[in-house]
């Protein structure tokens, strides 16, 4: 089980990094989503993997139970990640409509100019 989760985290993070490095803006958004899921899975695994219930009746914790705190943490992280990804998607959509282009290397309007003589005072 541990190996499976480790492998899954590696696949998620690997795929996320690969997608983030692509040229398309949609790939960027999906890649960041996958990176977030990889991080969530890592936190989940940190709490221990056990099928024993975390809260036992009568208040005595069972030996070998999984730690419930990381599960609460990733609930928070999932909600935040969902909101942030949705915002990024909306933003990317607006930018794509404004620019008419989803090729990130061509989004250079906000970058510092590389050569001095390319810029001219704006009206």
């Amino acid at each position: 089980m541990t190996w499976l989760l480790a492998l899954l985290t590696a696949v998620l993070v690997g795929a996320g990094v690969w997608l983030v490095l692509q040229r398309r803006v949609l790939h960027l958004v999906l890649g960041i989503g996958l990176l977030g899921h990889g991080a969530n899975l890592l936190v989940f695994a940190a709490g221990g993997l056990s099928s024993a219930p975390a809260f036992a009746p009568g208040g005595t914790p069972l030996p070998g139970a999984a730690d419930p705190l990381p599960q609460a943490l990733i609930l928070t992280a999932i909600v935040i990640g969902f909101g942030a990804t949705a915002f990024l998607l909306a933003l990317a959509w607006r930018a794509w409509r404004e620019l008419g282009d989803d090729d990130l290397p061509r989004w250079t309007g906000s970058e510092p100019p590389l050569e001095d003589d390319h810029q001219e005072p704006k009206p």
Binding site: V25, I32, L35, L42, G81, A84, T85, L91, G109, S110
Partner: peptide, 28 residues
């Protein structure tokens, strides 16, 4: 502004994923 914002948001979300991973390992 939209171009700059996409870059700013994207890099910060990558940073947040790193932050969360660090928290997870440290807690474990």
């Amino acid at each position: 502004r939209l171009e700059g914002a996409v870059k700013y948001v994207a890099i910060n979300l990558v940073g947040s994923a790193l932050f969360l991973s660090g928290c997870g390992i440290l807690y474990g």
